[in-house]
Amino acid sequence: MNSPSPIVQVDGLTKLFPVSKSLFGGPKGYIHAVDGVSFDLYPGQTLGLVGESGCGKTTIGKLLVKLQEPTSGRILFRDTGREPNGAEEDGAKVDGEFDDISQTKGQQLKDFRRKVQMIFQDPYESMNPRRTIFDTIAEPLLVQGIGNSLDRLDRVTKLLELVGLTPPATMLFRYPHELSGGQRQRVAIARALIIEPSFVVADEPTSMLDVSISTGIMMLMLDLSQRLGVTYLYITHDLAVARYMCQRIAVMYLGKIVEMAETEELLANPLHPYTRALLSSVPVPVPGFRREPVEIIGDLSAPLNPAHRCRFHDRCPIAGNECHATPHPPLEDRGGGHLVACYRV
């Protein structure tokens, strides 16, 4: 790994959602939205979480910023000052200890919220339509009690410039409905970065935008990560987007990470049959190009009380006896940091 020590360590993270039978019936079962997921995030790097709808990637994002409580597992967060050039960080421990944030409450939780932020998918719903852009971006400062109103105006102005909403003076007192989708998403990014978080969960920030706009947002996020050293957890269903945004990609299937590797390695040598299927179903923008056929069968099911075996066994083209008889395979390193959870590769 390029970086010595991670900023976030996720260990055996699990989130179950009860499915109730009736009002008094108690739970009928549990949806295993996230099931024993472990990964590390390194400072200044971006990890992509990729998978189809319902695979649990958004739930992981919400767990990491504590919008939801995990059922079990630990999320260790190390409080680092943001390194590169002079982003001044008042009172941050530079080489902090790991805190298990899955248990934090009260003031500790509030301190943690200063360090993490989230960018949501839909810029039309993530903003209060009655508040101006200034109010929207300054709110985290207000909540955290940072600066007086002049400071805040100053910081918001700087941030607007940074995210390319210029000239800032014309933007400050507009309302969300006066902005386009791309501009709104820039506001969302500004709002996430205003308190200089160490890490940001970005949940499909470009999937609602047109291509000509979305590459602009991607370039902005890449630029900010380089300039400010922000660490992203980048959630997307689009492997092409992940290729540009992420140093590493984790592929999820029904609550489990089935494969994780450096981006180009994963795209060039996918090992897990699900990753292969995912890659070969992405259309290619070259007329006449023939993709290899996708081999998996059936549809994605909900992980309701999943059986104690590989989650993918029923759709897998290469499943064998051991896949049916043994528990879900562990995520193992197959060399060079390429991790796969499969008995047959």
Binding site: S180, G182, Q183, V211, S212, I213, T215, G216, M218, M219, L222, L239, A240, V241, R243, Y244, E264, L267, L279, V282, V284, P285
Partner: peptide, 21 residues
């Protein structure tokens, strides 16, 4: 439009954007 489209295949071209709306 053709060149901004990110692809998972082939050479990783640098991202480009159209600018404006």
């Amino acid at each position: 439009l053709l060149s901004v489209f990110p692809s998972i295949r082939g050479e990783k071209r640098p991202l480009t954007t159209l600018g404006g709306e």
